[in-house]
């Protein structure tokens, strides 16, 4: 009995010591399958020739996301053809944020002329798996053999209000380094963003 109690205490303590969920830089990503705004399912495995991917947790409704909209489109234009396609995933629950419904996503992507997947995940399993916290929140992935590993987590750049005044374009710098076969210098950053609208648990 005593041994069981000690084991239980140990489990509880371990749990307390690792409260963070989601990926850290270096972790291997488990593939997902989510519905795109065109109705088709999209997985990482679909991008057979990719050297990596730029995953952006992004939504229709966050003013910070809106401010970064053009910059996200530009990232895809710049890097998709070089083996780093951009994949946007809406992490918000449409039950909590009605502006992030599938229908709203379809018209948003159409209006903005998105040429990259914009994926719907009402279950919020993928943002949970990644440990996404806000929008926009980026995870740059790099192919390592058959798997994809997290190479960068964080912000797009260091100036939300003005792209021209940004002194560090974190995602761009990370992808450029990966393309040159280098280690990513700045692996993790933070920025002001909108909290993901989680379903009431």
């Amino acid at each position: 009995m005593k041994r069981v109690i000690f084991a239980l205490i140990a489990v509880v303590m371990l749990g307390a010591a690792t409260p963070k969920n989601g990926y850290e830089v270096g972790d291997t990503v488990t593939d997902f399958s989510l519905k795109n705004v065109d109705g088709k399912m999209v997985s990482l495995a679909d991008f057979k020739d990719a050297k990596g991917a730029i995953i952006v947790f992004d939504c229709n409704t966050c003013p910070v996301s809106k401010k970064y909209n053009e910059r996200i489109i530009a990232l895809n234009e710049k890097f998709a053809s070089k083996g780093f396609p951009l994949i946007a995933i809406n992490p918000n629950s449409p039950e909590v944020s009605s502006g992030d419904s599938f229908e709203a996503m379809v018209s948003y992507a159409k209006n903005k002329g998105y040429r990259f997947p914009y994926l719907y995940d009402a279950s919020q399993a993928v943002p949970t798996q990644f440990g996404a916290t806000n929008t926009p929140h980026v995870f740059v992935l790099a192919k390592d053999g058959a798997s994809m590993k997290v190479a960068y987590i964080g912000a797009i750049d260091d100036n939300a209000s003005s792209a021209a005044d940004a002194t560090h374009r974190y995602v761009e710098e990370a992808v450029n380094e990966l393309m040159q076969g280098k280690q990513v210098t700045t692996k993790k950053t933070k920025a002001i963003g909108c909290t993901i609208k989680w379903k009431a648990s």
Binding site: T133, N134, H137, A155, K190, A191, I192, G193, C194, T195, I196
Partner: peptide, 9 residues
């Protein structure tokens, strides 16, 4: 705070 992602509020 180290635990803050930067998300508001």
């Amino acid at each position: 705070d180290k635990d803050w992602s930067g998300a508001l509020p």
